[in-house]
Simulated assay, not measured.
Amino acid sequence: MSRSPGSRRPSDPLKAAEAAFKKATTKPIEGPTKAPSIPGMKETVTLRIDHEILEYFQQDGPGWQDRINAALRKAIGK
């Protein structure tokens, strides 16, 4: 029995069930592997931090990103 084009149910429940099963059991394609990082190499990231934190590190002028990096290193004990 076919339904109108606006119907939410597929016209063939078996095909819909097979498609859902295939989607649920198929392993997703993995993207390319990430290249190993180079020691000492810095990476560009986007980071959302509170405005007050940013102002604190920027108040002494240029080098604020290095100061944030140093604070994060201290926080992880390195």
Rank of each mutant, 00 (worst) to 15 (best):
G40P: 03
G6D: 13
D66T: 10
A75S: 07
I68K: 03
K23S: 11
A71E: 05
K22Q: 15
D66R: 01
D12A: 07
R73G: 02
K74F: 03
E52W: 10
L14E: 09
Q58D: 06
Q59I: 08
I29G: 07
R8I: 11
A71S: 09
R73W: 02
G6N: 11
K27D: 11
A75L: 10
A19T: 14
R9I: 02
M41A: 03
K34W: 13
I53A: 13
S11P: 12
A71Q: 06
G61H: 09
A71K: 04
R9L: 10
T46P: 02
D12W: 14
S4F: 05
T25S: 00
Q58N: 06
D60K: 08
S2Q: 05
L47V: 04
K22E: 12
H51I: 01
L47D: 04
A17L: 09
D50F: 07
F21P: 15
I76P: 04
P13T: 06
D66S: 02
R9A: 12
I76S: 06
P62V: 01
A70R: 12
F57M: 02
K42Q: 04
G77N: 14
G63L: 09
S11L: 08
E43F: 05
K15P: 14
D60N: 08
P5E: 15
H51Q: 13
P5L: 12
L72N: 06
S7M: 04
R3P: 13
W64D: 01
T33E: 11
L72T: 12
A75K: 04
G31N: 09
T44L: 00
V45W: 03
G31I: 02
I29A: 04
M1N: 15
P36E: 15
